[in-house]
């Protein structure tokens, strides 16, 4: 290389935005992201609020909180809650078994846990409806016991257990894996028995991730449609879920009514989102 090689540094004007990074492409990629996000998600979502706003406040309340709607919310939120609790228990056990134990078929179990993520919900729906119908494999065992699972709130709960399980397992699992042995050894060396170690040290350490998984499963359960409608029976006031109410209103071309119920559901979803973020922010305090 000769000494003549000159490096021309072009003086550039002050950029419109202060450059925050040496890596190029920021304006382009952020622009695409914001545009697509607005067109696909934000603007259409705002249509719900605008449509519902066409109703007067009293109309809105009458539609969104009619007796039938209230019954649907009770069922939806109740079943989602019970299902999340059931998943909260078995999700911890499943994560525990996957992280701590070796057993034949573990790899298969591990893959299977994600089945609800991969299986179309309608398929799960007709399979569960067939299984738990009075003449189905499981239903025929329950009928003599006087338990009617399908076409009942129990059926709704069963479907939501199916849908929610991986959320709990996959949220707890990495935290449990990262929980180092020495914390449990420390508890043992301080005189704690195995049970007190688990209840005082391990489970509290899993607490935030458990709550997050619970909230994710609950939130998913509230909105779930495909796996539920086949097993629910869809009887007004008894086994009709809130998302189905929206569809019924749509079929009657009552768009504003559908939007009103959607607003209530969205409000609950966003509340769940806030709670999840708050739990995670709280958990970060300790690490």
């Amino acid at each position: 290389m000769t000494a003549e090689t000159a490096i021309a540094i072009r003086p550039t004007g002050r950029p419109l935005f202060r450059r925050r990074s040496a890596i190029p492409g920021f304006t382009l990629t952020l622009g695409v992201t914001l545009t697509v996000l607005s067109l696909i998600v934000l603007i259409p979502l705002s249509a719900v609020a605008l449509k519902a706003a066409q109703l007067s406040p009293s109309e809105f309340l009458a539609v969104a909180f009619s007796q039938r709607a209230m019954a649907a919310y009770r069922l939806t939120f109740g079943a989602a809650f019970v299902a999340a609790v059931i998943n909260g228990v078995f999700g911890v056990l499943t994560a525990w078994a996957l992280v701590r134990y070796e057993f034949p078929g573990k790899a298969l179990v591990n893959a299977l846990v994600d089945l609800p993520f991969a299986l179309p919900t309608a398929v799960a729906g007709i399979a569960l409806a067939t299984l738990y119908a009075p003449n189905g494999w499981v239903g025929s065992l329950l009928t003599p016991l006087g338990i009617k699972a399908a076409y009942n709130p129990i059926g709704v709960t069963i479907a939501l257990v199916f849908i929610g399980l991986p959320f709990v397992v996959r949220t707890i699992e990495p935290v449990l894996r990262d929980l180092s042995d020495d914390v449990e050894e420390a508890a043992a060396s301080l005189g704690a028995g195995r049970l007190s170690t688990i209840f005082r040290i391990v489970l509290p350490a899993l607490g935030p991730s458990w709550l997050t998984g619970f909230a994710l499963a609950f939130a998913r359960g509230i909105g779930e449609y495909g796996s539920v409608i086949f097993i629910a029976g869809n009887m007004p006031f008894k086994s009709e879920i809130a998302p189905l109410l929206i569809i019924i209103q749509l079929e009657q071309f009552e768009y504003a009514h559908a939007a009103a119920i959607a607003v209530v559901m969205l409000a609950v979803s966003f509340l769940m989102l806030l709670i999840i973020n708050a739990v995670q922010a709280w958990a970060r305090r300790f690490s």
Binding site: D182, E185, A186, S189, G191, P204, G207
Partner: peptide, 21 residues
Amino acid sequence: ASAAARRVGFVFQQYALFKHM
């Protein structure tokens, strides 16, 4: 004898403090 029964005080390399306490 189990660790719990020995009454030893053990200080771990990474301290193993209970984060949530």
